[in-house]
Design a binder for these strands. Sequence first.
DNA 1: CCTAAAAAGACATAAATAGTCTTTTAGTTA
DNA 2: TAACTAAAAGACTATTTATGTCTTTTTAGG
Lengths: 134, 134
Amino acid sequence: MMELTRKGEYAVRGIVYLATRPLDQVCLLSEIASAVDVPQTFLAKIFQQFSKIGLVRSYRGTGGGFVLGRLPENISLLEVVEAVEGPITPNRCVIGEGQCDRVAGCNVHPVWINVQQQTREILANVSLLQLAGK
Amino acid sequence: MMELTRKGEYAVRGIVYLATRPLDQVCLLSEIASAVDVPQTFLAKIFQQFSKIGLVRSYRGTGGGFVLGRLPENISLLEVVEAVEGPITPNRCVIGEGQCDRVAGCNVHPVWINVQQQTREILANVSLLQLAGK
DNA sequence: CCTAAAAAGACATAAATAGTCTTTTAGTTA
DNA sequence: TAACTAAAAGACTATTTATGTCTTTTTAGG
């Protein structure tokens, strides 16, 4: 339970690596993939997701590659994780009413809300800058 | 991510229901299953796991069924969840060294440890008594 | 010995995970 | 402009996990 998938793990590794590189320098996917030991084709999918929401910026063709979309101090671990894993929802019924038919008298519900909030807060307070150790 | 499986959901619902019942009274699995709307055969597996670690006590044959293994105030949500979902490990490498070859210079690691501890603490501080609303 | 009820284990199906492969699009350079 | 480079996009596959079901066995009571 509560386990990050490989996809999430790869995502973090990949973008943290990118954050360790010079920010003005376009970085090849192949370089990232081999540096963090992730299948390149798989990492490609992950970076496409990053790109769509602006976490990274991509350039095609010769001299192409990836750079961070924002300064590493302005990208949180929460954003990275949720970008590929979806929202952090410890229990289905946290998503919203209607999913959980027992919301009314459900004493478990607020506990999961609590877990969700604590977790999000922890992840939101960690930036790529910190993770990159710079 | 961080989502409880159906098994975990059913487990909580089932044992919370049991906690709402008179403690000295043996409760049929069929009653629990229909009360919390879970397939009986599936719930059977879950309660077998509970039984093995003493969360519930089972009686076979006529007049058989289940009772809580301890007082509801002494059973935490954490125990219930971990009984069926396994230990709460947000990231594989939290499990132990050797799993994560990047432990040495890994700045992500302590963050997951933090998430794990916070989550466990929250769940550990909720008892079946509270959840049963008694 | 017949019935009740949980235990145990084999089996089945569906969904999610973890990829791969191929083709297309965009940009660079000779 | 042709050739090359690199990401984007989408189809496809394999493996694992989740979510059960079914059958047989064990234990207990009447």
